[in-house]
Design a protein around this nucleic acid. Structure first.
Lengths: 269, 269
DNA sequence: TGAATAGTGTCTTTCAGACAATATGGA
DNA sequence: TCCATATTGTCTGAAAGACACTATTCA
């Protein structure tokens, strides 16, 4: 069903270039941009689309988020999530990856990425109208940013945000980070998102500690194990075992194909 | 979600790239739009932001979606969800309301509206790069579109989509509608979204039938009642009663302030 | 009176949560 | 040996689901 729809909209239509003398049409006509002259360059509203990345990892027992220190006005000295203006020939996830590499110096790709929310307040950037399509991304390795002029990225513990020792966030990026954290917590409840936070192969103890860090709880190991193993497609067992420090060696697993948790892993009641 | 992954694989062809303005800077500089000259008119990528509305109601026992017949190319004769180009001075929900009024002739406001997803495939509109920020909206009254030249809207049963008697959808709007339906189903599970589908005051039978229609199931009246009344903030009791046809008069309720269902109303197992 | 819907009571199954018990490594 | 972690076993309480039963109206 969805396949047909996508196929249907792939047509080799030629774009009609604009030769409008009038700079802008009325809002009413704008609402019906069907004509041959629709969407032409001189007729576009002044809206800029950027992609902002709410990028998380687990590092030494803490949930961390990738922020970039701003060096120019406005909001110089404050910290922002990596962002980039969307190019006409790229999709959101590509722009998100580009933003993380170019602005924060992070070279590793996301383990997982998905849409987060659109931030559309009219005054969120003082320069012009900027609509931000934020994405939620996670990695299994909170790698240090590579060197270079643009490598001003840093992983901040989310617990430090809002404290005197923590970063001061630019624009509405505190909102973006907060929304990302809450979505991340919800995704752990309903999907196998947590597997993207640990390196393969992983033990169920490592996976459980990812839940502990993101949710700020301590899940019961026995019940967690039963729940994960009872969910088809959550993890794939391997033959290996690993000795972390002390204690009995743990079985090693790989990420499953992508599971929907039915019923979910419960959080709070 | 998985949707994003699929979309990321679809690279736009060279057609879009060939339309780039010669005035544009490199992607690397674009990634750091901090300078005083950032976001100026001559430096903006050719990306148009539209708002598309996945707008649902329950009408005579069926879930219906509001579609508009296209009268111009491309995709003339096919049906699309109401959409509008985002104006620089409005937020998404305002543009969504404007689209429904101007394009479909629907005058009643949404009972509830929230963000749905961003559709960002590079070739989703043959004319130019269009990024669609889709919203999910519902109403309690599937009112007939008002007359007028622009009132080409029609409520289609979602069950008719994909059948010979149903509408053929333009662009990737089948994807937008499908995503909206699935999100609506999920929202009924976790929130009090269903109360927005019924007119106040309502009986628990009417509320339950909204679940039945959206989910395509028949919930057990006794268990449903217990569940709803046990969830704080879901519905507010009133003193009134109503006799629908035959049968015992039912208590009337109003919408609660907006509840998060913990635990949710279960769907499928 | 019978049909239809609303509302109450209760039983069974399932599952989360707690916790005891065992397994297996390192210090 | 003790200690720490993994893994298995078992019990309990809460909630979903099924269904019998009562209540109240209209035809």
């Amino acid at each position: 069903m969805a396949k047909d729809g996508k196929k249907a909209d792939r047509r080799p239509g030629g774009r009609v270039k604009a030769q409008k003398s009038v700079k802008k049409r009325s809002a009413e006509v704008r609402a019906v941009p069907d004509g041959p002259g629709g969407y032409v360059a001189d007729d576009r509203p002044d809206v800029v689309v950027v992609v902002d990345v709410s990028y998380f990892a687990v590092d030494r027992g803490a949930l961390v988020v990738l922020l970039v220190e701003r060096t120019r006005q406005p909001d110089a000295g404050r910290w922002a999530v990596p962002g980039a203006v969307l190019e006409p020939d790229e999709v959101l996830t590509d722009a998100a990856a580009r933003a993380v590499v170019a602005r924060a110096g992070i070279l590793e790709p996301f383990t997982r990425v998905e849409q987060l929310a659109v931030f559309d307040a009219g005054d969120r950037d003082p320069r012009t109208r900027v609509v931000s399509t934020a994405v939620l991304a996670v990695t299994s390795t909170a790698a240090a940013p590579a060197g270079g002029a643009l490598a001003s990225g840093r992983w901040w513990p989310v617990g430090a945000i809002g404290t005197p020792a923590g970063p001061s966030l630019a624009f509405d990026h505190l909102d973006i980070v907060t929304t990302g954290i809450e979505r991340l917590r919800a995704r752990l409840e309903l999907t196998d998102f947590a597997t993207a936070l640990v390196e393969e192969p992983f033990t169920l103890g490592e996976l459980r500690r990812a839940y502990d860090v993101v949710w700020g709880v301590e899940l019961e190991p026995a019940n967690f194990r039963r729940k994960v193993l009872a969910t088809p497609g959550f993890v794939v067992p391997t033959a290996g075992k690993r000795i972390v420090g002390t204690g009995r060696p743990a079985d090693l697993y790989l990420r499953g194909g992508g599971a929907v948790l039915h019923p979910p892993i419960p959080r709070q009641r």
